[in-house]
Design a protein around this nucleic acid. Structure first.
Lengths: 156, 156
DNA sequence: GTTCATGCAAACACTTTGCACTCCG
DNA sequence: CGGAGTGCAAAGTGTTTGCATGAAC
């Protein structure tokens, strides 16, 4: 666990305790290397420590997010996910067909933030670009069929 | 009600019925001219028709969003709001201090979508730019104080 | 030893669903 | 009239909270 020490420091510096639960949750996210829902994190942690409670996961995620040790994102359909804070800025793409979530390297995000900040006088601390549509695969599979934009079948 | 006729047409065209509930919900959003949560829409509609049920509001919002008659957005903290589809594209800014939501005119959104679409091969249908930070007013009010990035008090 | 954090269970907010009746077309 | 749409009640999700026990420092 490389960042282990600095994490302990961050917790202690703000007057919080270093508990196995907190370290486990961080480690689960770090080693997964992808975003996870609270439920997924709960499952991952319980593989190591079956006694950990879901409420502890929620409490811990909120704390760690506010300490800046991990990021919280709201995806396409309102699903909330967390991820280890490493990539500086990237966008999430939600495919409405296969329900897959893709990460997009978006060098644009920094530019967008700067641009908006200059224009508006806002202090932008977090920027999330959320996209919904069809991934290349699903796009190809519906190609050819005239897709009815919102047929009765599709709308329910 | 100006758009009234084309709305009826859109519903009929897809085989859905025109009901007072559906028209009331659309009208509530149109006349409000701002985004509203399901609960807010429910309250607004009940002012005119007290018998309308909350489940009908949810069912109708989902239907109308899929027909493209209104937009569904996920805001800063995961709150879901709906709004009358008029502005082509704009971003939401959530101030973490006063919890206000500001609309930003973002001419950039179109450009961003085109850029990403070209690079990635994705079919981008919906693009939401979600910002969190401090609005100019709150920014000014915390100026001077060295704000502790995540003090114990702030973190719980 | 204090105090903070956890596990447990219960409450909570928001959204969806099953069903009989209603009313649009 | 037939079936889509509604109101009602109930269940489902995902998340938060109160409290006594247990762990971190």
């Amino acid at each position: 666990m490389p960042h282990c020490h600095s994490i302990r420091q961050t917790l202690r510096r703000h007057g919080f305790r270093v508990t196995p639960q907190r370290m486990l949750i961080l480690e689960a996210l770090r080693s997964a290397g992808r975003h996870m829902t609270a439920e997924e994190i709960y499952a991952a942690v319980r593989a190591y420590a079956p006694a950990v409670d879901l409420s502890t996961v929620y409490r811990t995620l909120r704390l760690l997010a506010r300490l800046g040790l991990l990021d919280r994102h709201v995806l396409g359909e309102g699903r909330i996910v967390y991820e280890w804070r490493d990539q500086p800025g990237h966008a999430h793409f939600f495919c409405r067909s296969c329900r897959e979530v893709l990460h997009l390297e978006a060098d644009l995000l920094g530019d967008i933030a700067r641009e908006l900040q200059a224009r508006s006088g806002l202090a932008i601390e977090q920027l999330t670009l959320m996209l919904v549509g069809l991934c290349p695969r699903c796009r190809a599979s519906v190609e050819g069929k005239k897709d009815p934009p919102a047929s009765q079948a599709a709308a329910r």
